[in-house]
Design a protein around this nucleic acid. Structure first.
Lengths: 113, 113
DNA sequence: TTATTATATAAGCATATTCTTATATAAACA
DNA sequence: TGTTTATATAAGAATATGCTTATATAATAA
């Protein structure tokens, strides 16, 4: 079943994606859960700056969080009305796996298995 | 041949699309040339406000203009590197034909044939 | 030429955005 | 318990955005 998108809401979603940091976050989260400290390492940004971007994404419902011990993991929310739309948009972007690999190489990838 | 998109440029494009007025403009321009005064009628916005949105779109190269007599017509620029990307994004949005029909009904549609 | 119509540009203002630093909260660990 | 680690929130500052009004430019018509 296809949801009918509305242009104003779509504009707001695109505005959220229209920031390099958030767009990269979403691209990564589409395939991999990540916690805040991983993004801090990835983007070379202060922790509050990262948290604030994630909060915007969370407030929109595009992203959800789940606490695992001391960490809070974020992931794309597949039940969002615009989930398919967002996946489609980011599907055309280069994947960011190399960034995650850097993290792993530096031993900064967090895993809870 | 497929162009390789880069995430920073894509974010800038999405930021441009992340405004209700500009997103609607692009959606309309994807199928129909329009001149400034048509958008002024459509959006019930002042002419300078409309011109400034169009200038942003033109500065990005996403949209091109062509003067026809007293009018300046805008259209989507098919040779832009992100043309396919943009078309894909807007393909999921509801079409805005009803707005053009309103214009026609009011005798405000401009045509140069 | 002068007036009208369409459009662009400039300047200013209100608000939004995105950082920064400082501090609060929450879980884990000694 | 107190300390460390991870995260969130608050407040402030710098900049960006999107309008407004006034004015400039360009084409057309009288």
């Amino acid at each position: 079943m296809k949801h009918e998108l509305d242009i104003e809401t779509a504009a707001n979603i695109l505005k959220l994606l229209g920031d390099k940091t958030r767009l990269t976050m979403i691209k990564i989260l589409a395939d991999h859960e990540c916690c805040v400290c991983e993004f801090v390492a990835l983007f070379q940004m202060t922790q509050p700056a990262v948290s604030q971007h994630l909060r915007k994404l969370k407030d929109s419902g595009l992203v959800k969080e789940s606490r695992k011990g001391q960490w809070v993991f974020y992931s794309l929310n597949p039940s969002h009305t615009y989930y398919d739309f967002v996946r489609n948009v980011i599907s055309h972007l280069p994947n960011q796996l190399s960034k995650l690999k850097e993290l792993e190489a530096q031993g900064k990838r967090i895993s809870c298995d």
